[in-house]
């Protein structure tokens, strides 16, 4: 059974259709990549999955339950974690406290168990030395790491990563890929929106292409990237 299933999901902002009859499934533990040009509706699709934006039509099923009408909070507790494209830390809280909020509320954990989970995630994401730093003082790259760490602290069954590798150096990108692979190795399903294609294709098992809110194709990365329509969209972008 799929961990996530979208069935004919659509969303419009006024006359602009940003998600147009999108249907796909993600298997438990699978890593799915999403690519598409700017404005293709990738982040909107994430917002529809997390409940930050309501669907106009279609259904979203997560872990066997129809979550279409559920609040974002209920979906996090059900096991959908996310990072934002533009990092959104709790700026007056420390890095550690950012994770503790997520572990307490999203992960439903408390006491020593939550504290230890946060410490371990901070170490795995390279934020251990910044645990007590105020998150508002972090650099952009550190904030991106915090986005990933905070999503992990909700103990998700499915984690949504929105352009988390953007702006990273090659070395940082390699470290990030290793972290994402370790999340995958724990059995967590991942949907990853990314423009850094070499990072994406080194991890994902399937690739989906969005354009003008429509799903163009979905399948094995090498097959998808060889599709004429995709080659046209990505003409000039090195894979």
């Amino acid at each position: 059974m799929a961990i996530l299933s979208l069935n004919s999901v659509s969303k419009s902002f006024g006359a602009l259709k940003v998600t147009d009859d999108v249907s796909f499934e993600v298997a438990p533990g699978e890593v799915l990549g999403i690519i598409g040009p700017n404005g293709a509706g990738k982040s909107t699709l994430f917002n529809l999955i997390t409940g930050n934006i309501r669907t106009d039509a279609g259904t979203i099923t997560f872990d066997g339950t129809d979550v279409t009408g559920q609040s974002p909070m209920a979906r996090v507790k059900a096991g959908i974690g996310r990072s934002f494209q533009i990092p959104q830390p709790f700026t007056h809280l420390s890095v550690y406290e950012n994770l503790l909020v997520a572990a307490n509320f999203g992960g439903g954990q408390g006491g020593r168990e939550a504290e230890q989970l946060c410490v371990d995630i901070l170490d795995r994401t390279g934020l251990g030395d910044l645990a007590e730093a105020t998150s508002g003082s972090l650099s952009l790259l550190q904030r991106k790491r915090l986005e990933l760490a905070r999503a992990m602290a909700t103990s998700p069954k499915l984690i949504l990563l929105d352009e988390i590798a953007g702006g990273l150096t090659d070395g940082e990108c390699v470290a990030l890929i290793e972290t994402i692979k370790s999340i995958h190795a724990q059995g967590t399903a991942i949907i990853w929106i990314e423009h850094v294609l070499h990072a994406l294709t080194s991890v994902v098992e399937r690739l989906m292409v969005l354009n003008f809110g429509k799903m163009l194709t979905i399948g094995a990365p090498e097959v998808v990237m060889d599709t004429p329509a995709v080659r046209e969209i990505y003409l000039g972008i090195e894979v």
Partner: peptide
């Protein structure tokens, strides 16, 4: 209280980690 301070800092992000 921790959840409350998260809401004060960023409402959307607080929702995304399960704070009501």
């Amino acid at each position: 209280g921790l959840g409350l301070q998260a809401i004060r800092d960023n409402l959307e992000a607080a929702r995304s980690v399960g704070v009501d």
